[in-house]
Design a protein around this nucleic acid. Structure first.
Lengths: 259, 259
DNA sequence: ACCTGAACACCGTTCAAGT
DNA sequence: ACCTGAACACCGTTCAAGT
């Protein structure tokens, strides 16, 4: 998988002596790195080891290159721009081949697709706050959500409010879903480990007179299935609310300016 | 404001000579640092300069102390724990003196209060994904939200789904609201700068045949007021959806297992 | 015993020196 | 002209040496 192999050229760690001439690779240079290869590598690094593991230097090692080559071949000026590329690449995974109809099914489908991508790439929500979506795939994703509700005859504000509410609801859920999923951001914790920590926290801190409602709720051990249930319940409430509002709007228009 | 003043003791940057005896402060040590002072300083640093500006070293300089003193006096073992303390301190700002009634007003009030805190501390959402809320104020916040819906006679799953949906909707909105607020996370951008960047992005990338819906929508220049409107519209949709579901549940229960 | 200065092993990025 | 090794100015954290 990693390309940091023998024929990567005379890359040596500190104090390492040059290898004898005859054991060196005859190929002086690998094919030049592509931006795509760099971004793919960064993403899989972030997925498996967490965002902190994505350093220019480890990325270089992983790709059998030198640190400065990352800047050259990814055509980035700062590390932040690499993150921008990563964010946009994941946006690509949120695109649907085809939108269902009517608007409600379409919105629901984009939300679920978005959630899938965010569960695969839990570091995404952390990055997106710093980097407004302005990449091509981010734009495509926005266009897609807008296409989902294109049929609705409503004002601009409502249109924007709808797509933002759904999109951001998903991001908000994903921000947490992560840890409680067992697939935490940095050091992967198993569901069992999480459960144990949560129990300890409960007996030590929660079960006091100060927290009657939390105590009454009992131990929390949401499985991934539970998490999905919470997610879809909330999503459907939001969609229900939108739907009701649309009906109200429509009847208002039909009957003139009746409040 | 900063305590890195003259009487902070013989702290010297590299190559600086000791000052003459008579100009040195007679107080050999300041009062020892408190955890609270450290966390407060870290928060105001993050608010004004962004999360990256919060380093153990700058924190120490700011407080007129040495780096290792931060670990000792904040009683933390790693920097991550400082972040945990910061997250929990902000949770404290989300607590209400008193919950309105009924449940809907209570949930709405907690959501708005939460949003206020997140706008003041835009770095919060970035941290919370890495650190599950287990501090005392985080627990109090959870208890508060649970108290808001305590009167409702519904099953455990629905209770959890409701509080998670609302809480996470707010976090999701706050994740973005930031940049588009003009109060971006790291280098503060004015609304005007953001508007200009958005316009440029629009003419260069969006207004092509690929994005008919986005093009039709026209330029986006949401003011903070617009953002708040999007936020509250979505929040009310979510609350409407919950409300409708509750009515449905109630009538189901009243009429036996109808449906 | 508690505290901390110097040291270590990393960073991202600059820039001059290579080709 | 393009590319990159070494250097720079930072990090968080360890640990031995101070008090």
């Amino acid at each position: 998988m990693t390309r940091a192999d023998a024929n990567a050229g005379p890359r040596r760690t500190k104090n390492e002596r040059p290898r004898p001439l005859w054991t060196r690779s005859p190929t002086p240079r690998r094919a030049p790195l592509s931006r795509e290869a760099i971004v793919t590598c960064a993403i899989s690094l972030a997925d498996s080891q967490g965002l902190d593991a994505v350093s220019i230097r480890t990325l270089a090692t992983e790709l059998g290159a030198r640190p400065m080559s990352i800047y050259t071949y990814a055509q980035i000026e700062r590390k932040k721009e690499l993150f921008d590329l990563m964010v946009d690449a994941v946006c690509g995974e949120m695109l649907l081949d085809q939108l269902p109809r009517p608007w409600r099914d379409a919105l629901r489908a984009t939300a679920l697709r978005c959630r899938d991508a965010l569960i695969r790439h839990p570091w995404w929500t952390e990055l997106v706050g710093r980097n407004v979506l302005t990449g091509p795939n981010g734009t495509r994703y926005r266009e897609q959500t807008l296409a989902a509700i294109a049929g609705l005859k409503i004002d601009r504000t409502r249109k924007l409010a709808i797509i933002l509410a759904v999109e951001r609801y998903v991001v908000g859920q994903a921000t947490y879903a992560i840890d409680e999923h067992g697939a935490s951001r940095t050091p992967a914790r198993t569901h069992e480990q999480w459960r144990q920590a949560a129990d300890e926290h409960r007996t030590v801190q929660i079960e006091t007179a100060e927290f009657p409602h939390l105590t009454a709720l009992g131990p929390l051990h949401p499985t991934p299935d539970d998490q999905e249930r919470y997610f879809t319940l909330g999503l459907d409430w939001l969609l229900d609310g939108i739907s009701t509002d649309l009906k109200r709007q429509r009847s208002t228009t039909r009957n003139g300016q009746r409040h």
